[in-house]
Design a protein around this nucleic acid. Sequence first.
DNA 1: CTGTATCATTCACGTCATGAACGATGTCAA
DNA 2: TTGACATCGTTCATGACGTGAATGATACAG
Lengths: 144, 144
Amino acid sequence: MNDVKQTIAFRLGTLGAVMQDRFASKIETYDLKPKHVGLMAALKGGTAAASQQDLAARLGVAPSLVVALADHLEHLGAVERVRDPGDRRRQTLTLTEHGAALLARCAAAAGELDDEITASLAASERTALRDTLGRLAAGVGLPS
Amino acid sequence: MNDVKQTIAFRLGTLGAVMQDRFASKIETYDLKPKHVGLMAALKGGTAAASQQDLAARLGVAPSLVVALADHLEHLGAVERVRDPGDRRRQTLTLTEHGAALLARCAAAAGELDDEITASLAASERTALRDTLGRLAAGVGLPS
DNA sequence: CTGTATCATTCACGTCATGAACGATGTCAA
DNA sequence: TTGACATCGTTCATGACGTGAATGATACAG
């Protein structure tokens, strides 16, 4: 056979698209898209206050997209934009309390999604999958 | 922590996007996009000659998109469109020899990609991952 | 034969993300 | 200090992608 469809890469691609869609519909009540969540998550993980350029590099998107995402998150009150006093070109983004709460709800939604799709898996397989995916993500340079 | 980023759903989403991109750049020399490969793979797997409606349903896309994909594949000589004599509204798509060869190259490309991203994994983990992903895909109703 | 449903196709549209241009700010050398 | 150049955030025009409504051809029930 040697089928494309049974390849890890292809399955990750198609499954990833489905996950994105399902996650998107779960969080649309918060007026958020997956990329917004990605941005907030990067903000939470980051130790130092992040400039928009840094964020763009971490997320692997164009800086102009970060502007749009930050605009929306700021409008929701999830994020604050502050000029870096040390370098006034930079906008440092920080997560507000409301943003953290929102992020927590998104994490819960993702958790539900996990439960739904891994319902037929043994607990050991589930943790093995989570672990393996984490290493793959790290391998391709994705923020963990 | 309870981090979104460590969730299976989120990791599948981001990893899936990366895989799609990498796979797309591997096959762009054949003038193909991942969806074209998906269509050809569905064609190969299908026993009976498939109508475009069927394909659209299997792939989870709009029928009008199948038209565009089939147009391109037909132009490449990878697919043949034949009116179903039993129901002349239907166009049945079949994979040509050239299409099968193209599909094989795409399968090889996906295989290379597998090797690249799973280089740091033990062979047992790799097969476990492939198996688990297959079951997840089946669980969400994806064609296997 | 007539009305209705189904298929493939076309077309206008919305969404998403990018890259080029621009103004503001920083930096470095003369 | 001043002038050249780099960097940051922002705006804007543009292209890629997929959808849904409208259309014409064909099937089918009454």
